[in-house]
Design a protein around this nucleic acid. Structure first.
Lengths: 152, 152
DNA sequence: GCATAAAGTTAGTCTAGGCTAACAATCTGC
DNA sequence: GCAGATTGTTAGCCTAGACTAACTTTATGC
């Protein structure tokens, strides 16, 4: 599973093959949860680079609604996992891997958002819910969402 | 916000009123994430009591796909938060509050699941995605899901 | 009714992801 | 070009949620 590539250091989960369907589902949710924050960060970093020209920790902190030290620590993990590069007191850059993940996330986010809007949801609620939902949508579900949002 | 009542001991988040929409959305996701595990547990406990007559830690561990000590620690938190009662070496019971939360979760889970199925998703994927999505769906979105699943 | 198996608990470790306090570096305005 | 403001980092603390190892209690089979 590609989504796990940068999570090798994480404690091994019980073998899902021996567990029942329910346990598999929970296992999947835990795996997704592990990656959520990283996905949110690379997506935001890509956006900041696009709109501001650079991704500064202070802006990341503001957009994420957390403090600067939290951002610093998280960026350390992202760098360790090969998603970003950074130099001390300088702004942040995405690696190829980080850029690819950001693109994928943005794609998923947009489909989920368009889908919710096409259901008739107001844009503020749609944005908030999309932020939570996007990390838990399988390829199959995403395809159905996209098809629905594109119906005439 | 009722969902926060049993999370008083958790570190205070930055005031969402001062943050922008994006930060609010992330804040909401973090709040939801805090409650996810508790919701999964009470939902499962209610189900076990209904189907097996009692909720034993060993069954919770199997269904959740985690080890027994993890279950023990988590049950300790649920008891502390007033969602369950337990006696040493005995099975687990829901408090009124826990029962109410379980009911609400089951309700949300069922709507999300029926919605995904009505989109044409296979039941296995629907079950897995519902498990992740159900915690991130607002009341408003849930209402739309329910309406869609009930369309003729 | 006792030995053993199964279930539950306790203790200790680890990582993620929050925070504050304190300090260091960079940027800005005069 | 330097003082003060802004930004970034480091250190240290905390909780949640996962694990293993070791122990205790309860249940079971003969």
């Amino acid at each position: 599973m590609t989504k796990d590539d940068h999570q090798d250091a994480v404690a091994r989960e019980p073998d899902p093959r021996t567990a029942d369907n329910r346990a598999e589902a929970f296992h999947g949710v835990r795996v997704a949860r592990r990656n959520e924050l990283a996905e949110d960060y690379v997506e935001l970093i890509a956006e900041l680079i696009h709109t501001q020209g650079e991704a500064r920790p202070v802006d990341i902190a503001t957009k994420m609604g957390v403090t600067a030290p939290t951002v610093a620590k998280t960026l350390g993990r992202l760098a360790r996992d090969g998603l970003i590069t950074r130099a001390k007191y300088r702004s942040v850059f995405l690696t190829d891997e980080g850029r690819a993940l950001a693109k994928e996330c943005r794609h998923r986010h947009e489909i989920v958002l368009r889908f919710l809007l096409s259901l008739g949801l107001d844009s503020e609620t749609a944005e908030r819910d999309a932020e939570g939902i996007e990390h838990h949508v399988s390829e199959r579900t995403l395809a159905l969402f996209a098809a629905f949002a594109n119906r005439s």
